[in-house]
Design a protein around this nucleic acid. Structure first.
Ligand SMILES: [Mn+2]
Ligand SMILES: [Mn+2]
Ligand SMILES: [Zn+2]
Ligand SMILES: [Zn+2]
Lengths: 145, 145
DNA sequence: TAGCCTTTTTAGAATAATTCTAAGAATAAT
DNA sequence: ATTATTCTTAGAATTATTCTAAAAAGGCTA
């Protein structure tokens, strides 16, 4: 009979416990889904739900969940990492005007590697795409000046 | 007559001086073109050509040249920035086995945005692509185990 | 060339995000 | 209940990078 727990309970963290702190951190991320908060921003929001939580724990939880594949760590340039709960394959777009980050999905039937001339035999495990520019809202705002 | 210098001398740094230190740093980058060294690696190599150069200067030169568009700063995850003198549009591939970085060019007639479903009105100024996986050499090595 | 102004270099201090450490708390296993 | 394991926590440590302020170099004009 042994350990049928992992099968029946489908803990998204696998063998790791879904502790109170981890739940809070995850909820914060899902709530601000469009948002891509940094660890410190997650910390501030998490404290509203659990005032005793520590920054170290937020870092630990974010790392744990990243490892478990529940969230993605987004690095743009040298800025603080941001975290994203969207598990679909997508690129990140940073608007240099409003400084928000947007998810950009793949077109139907397209692979992100398509435009690239990959040498024969190269195996791609991961592909990250970061864009920078002006988002539709800001672009519109600019054009009717 | 005034200042016809920028026109006639085509200094790739524009108005900025091509100093002895900047030349050394640039030479190091071009020499190890395939290499994508970090600032500290550039520093070590630069010292061979100019033992008196300082790390601060290497950082300054790299930033200057990045601003001037002569080199590109490559950021993979949270690791130290690397620097690349290849001005052609290209992606970066990190081999998790040999830990080297390779340039990956665009296919003919392809644009890096092709596979992405960009919302109407979004203006892209810059697009960065980082890949991770196993390079052809390492993949071959693995398969004839 | 001498004097002046601007740019660049330099060593070391400061910064900021992240990771590490070690001890206590929570949870699970026996 | 006892023990073992995992998790949380505060604070110290780390690391790449940026900042600071003073000296050096380079350019320009008289
Ligand atoms: Mn995202
Ligand atoms: Mn490159
Ligand atoms: Zn915007
Ligand atoms: Zn390799």
């Amino acid at each position: 009979m042994a350990n049928n727990k992992t099968v029946s309970e489908k803990n998204p963290l696998g063998d790791l416990r879904m502790t109170k702190q981890r739940k809070v951190v995850y909820d914060v991320l899902v709530e601000g889904a469009k948002d891509h908060p940094t660890a410190s921003e997650v910390f501030v929001r998490a404290k509203e739900l659990m005032p005793s939580i520590s920054l170290a724990t937020v870092y630990n939880c974010l790392e744990t969940m990243t490892q478990a594949g529940v969230v993605t760590q987004v690095n743009m340039d040298r800025e603080a990492s941001r975290f994203c709960p969207n598990l679909q394959p997508h690129a990140h777009f940073f608007c240099s005007e409003c400084e928000e980050i947007f998810d950009v999905g793949l077109k139907e039937k397209e692979a992100p590697t398509t435009p690239w001339a990959l040498p024969d035999g190269m195996e791609i495990d991961q592909l990250l795409v970061n864009m920078r520019g002006v988002c539709p809202k800001c672009a519109a705002k600019n054009s009717n000046n």
